[in-house]
Design a protein around this nucleic acid. Structure first.
Length: 590
RNA sequence: GCCUCCAUAGCUCAGUGGAUAGAGCACUUCCCUCCUAAGGAAGGGGUCGCAGGUUCGAUUCCUGCUGGGGGCGCCA
């Protein structure tokens, strides 16, 4: 309704503009909601925009525009204020009508057709399946999922996708880490290989080793001597220099080569086992968080179908590649990147970048009108080369949008918690959800603008969870549910309420706030900013609580009672719709 | 060094071309014989990091500076 009000006012202003200054008919007309109630329900700054080109005093111009404004039953007053604003007051009836719309449209209120059911792909989380998701991943998950729901609400045909990095070195490291733990279990007490500091340290690795041992006993056991034979050496444990680090990585790589060689076919089983385990854990975790993916896309599949090789070939043919130092490079500097990038190493293996080019080619070939990557902010330097590769393949790089999500930093007892999967020192998303609860967790994650660092104070969230704004909003919802229960009537009858009886400032303010929901959805969707929904809901809940304390809703007079219950029910509905976008539940009682 | 995000109340953060810059927490007072007090009402608290520029108008846009997070691999 308010949507209609806004465009209605824009049309009135357009008519006035044509009459006052026909030569300026191309000027865009902005109708906004003033921050202060004293400035009316809507305002327009057209006179100030025009003042310069027409060379007239903005206030006089505004006065002229007002006098040329066509009559409308919806508008009570239009007056000039400030430096040349035109402030509108719309009739109470026009404002209140939104209550009926909300009750009639229910869960669909606020939905728009802006997206025109065009296909959009949203890829997010895509964490390596090398360990449990931690609180950093949680933010990407909450943001991405809310973004999907938001875009769906705004009329897009959304597909959510998780890119599974199941083909890289990290997976090999995880497999070999598990194998080493397993070897210890096979021969307890015996002298065993030292567990490398740069292998995966987490307890979940030991858990997988135990499972492996329980199911297969000594099947993957190989003599220690055969493993050690020809292994790259380790530097002194105390050394922290770059050369030592490089040596440690080389040691790990030679362990992987050794494991492959000694285990043969069984290495594949081991590799698949750890992948399946971690993916299942990750998937379960996300499902419990209410985060759903339509597609789990395997990086390995890109190699299997030969798309990576074909992609590189295609770039080769179009002259975007060259060979140097034995490696094959993509000339990304031709597309604005700061340096060229390797796509194929001197040992013949493709880099992660090569498979990512193939992945993006595949995304384009699936026919999306819009492709959104939700990436951690640490990937920002990666954007130019991907865009470059897309351009080099003759595709439109503008189709790809990258939404960068800044880090979530977790504070425990006033100390910043580390977040490294390899070192095993991290707080898992699962732990966080168990401590804080899923609703508070998801709400907290989207309560910050995504390009803003998020400070997640675990102790505060745990100890003072009652202060969490999520409860404030849920409480408003529960209060209405309680009212509806006490009222006891048939909700369908509320659409027939005499809304004009709602004439107090509190009620009109609430109606105006409710009317703003579709605009908030629209803005949030176009800016990929679900946090705007969260802030809107806080404001709506505040307005409702204030009203609830100031006026009685279940009054004796039947018509008035019906109108007030209808308003409360509309508040409940909009909170419900907004929370659904955020993936947060709305309990009926608290 | 280069790239990028950021700097707004004591703290955590909204607002991003408009009129007197907002919220929560914390602090000071009030309000349950009354529809859930996980609530409400009132109050104090700010040179919107600094300096220029564009504009009728800048916390918002541009440039520089200062301070902070992150990134700059033939890792993924």
């Amino acid at each position: 309704m308010s949507h209609d009000l806004k465009s209605h006012l824009a049309e009135l202003m357009r008519a006035a503009l044509l009459s006052v200054a026909p030569t300026e008919s191309a000027t865009s007309i902005h109708i906004e909601r003033p921050k202060q109630a004293a400035h009316g329900d809507f305002s327009c700054n057209l006179a100030m925009q025009l003042a310069r080109s027409i060379k007239r005093n903005p206030r006089q111009l505004a006065q002229l525009l007002v006098s040329e404004l066509p009559y409308s039953v919806l508008v009570d007053t239009a007056e000039v204020a400030g430096a040349g604003f035109i402030n509108f007051r719309v009739s109470a009836a026009a404002k209140l009508e939104v209550v009926r719309s909300i009750l009639e449209q229910g869960d669909a209120f606020g939905r728009s057709t802006a997206g025109d059911r065009r296909k959009v792909l949203v890829e997010f989380v895509s964490a390596n399946p090398t360990g449990p998701l931690h609180v950093g991943h949680g933010r990407g998950a909450a943001y991405g999922d809310s973004l999907c729901k938001l875009l769906d609400f705004a009329g897009w045909d959304v597909t959510s996708e998780y890119y599974v990095n199941d083909a890289g070195r990290q997976m090999d490291i995880l497999a070999v880490s598990t194998w080493l733990r397993y070897l210890d279990l096979c021969s307890p007490g015996a002298e065993h290989l030292p567990f490398p500091a740069n292998a995966y340290q987490g307890d979940y690795v030991r858990d997988m080793a135990r499972q492996l041992f329980a199911a297969h006993a000594g099947r993957y056991l190989r003599p220690t001597a055969s493993i050690c034979d020809g292994l790259a050496g380790l530097p002194d444990g105390a050394r922290t220099d770059a050369a030592a680090a490089q040596q440690r990585e080389a040691h790990l790589d030679s362990l992987i080569v050794k494991a492959r060689h000694l285990l043969g076919e069984e290495w594949t089983y081991l590799h698949d086992f750890v992948l399946t385990e971690q993916l299942a854990d990750c998937r379960g975790d996300l499902e419990e968080s209410g985060v759903h993916f339509d597609i789990w896309f395997s990086e390995q599949s890109l190699f299997s179908i030969g798309l990576v090789a074909r992609c590189v070939e295609r770039l080769e043919k179009s002259g975007h590649l060259y060979v140097q130092d034995g490696a094959r490079w993509f000339r990304s500097t031709a597309f604005g990147d700061e340096k060229d990038r390797v796509v194929q190493r001197d040992n013949g293996l493709y880099t992660y970048f090569a498979s990512d080019i193939a992945y993006h080619l595949n995304k384009y070939e699936r026919g999306f009108q819009r492709i959104i990557n939700v990436w951690g902010a640490d990937h920002h330097g990666y954007i130019p080369r991907v865009r470059g590769a897309i351009s080099a393949l003759g595709l439109d790089p503008e189709l790809l949008e990258v939404a960068l999500v800044q880090f979530a930093v977790l504070y425990r007892s006033g100390w910043k918690a580390q977040m490294s999967t390899r070192s095993g020192d991290f707080v898992t998303l699962r732990t966080l959800r168990e401590d804080v609860g899923n609703d508070a967790c998801r709400f907290f994650y989207v309560l910050r603008k995504s390009d803003q660092h998020l400070e997640f104070d675990l102790d505060l969230a745990k100890s003072e969870s009652n202060d969490n704004p999520v409860y404030y909003i849920q409480y408003a919802h529960a209060r209405v549910c309680s009212l509806l229960g006490l009222w006891g009537g048939e909700q369908k009858t509320l659409t027939a309420a005499q809304l004009e009886l709602l004439d107090s400032p509190h009620q009109l303010a609430l109606a105006a706030r409710l009317g703003g929901f579709p605009e908030v959805v629209e803005t949030a969707a176009s800016e990929l900013a679900p946090h705007l929904i969260a802030f809107y809901l806080k404001d709506l809940a505040a307005e409702f609580h204030s009203y609830y304390n100031a006026e009685r809703i279940l009054v004796d007079e039947p018509a008035l009672q019906c109108a007030r219950v209808a308003l409360a029910a509309a508040v409940r509905q909009v909170i419900h719709n907004g929370m659904a976008i955020l993936g947060v539940s709305c309990p009926e009682s608290m």
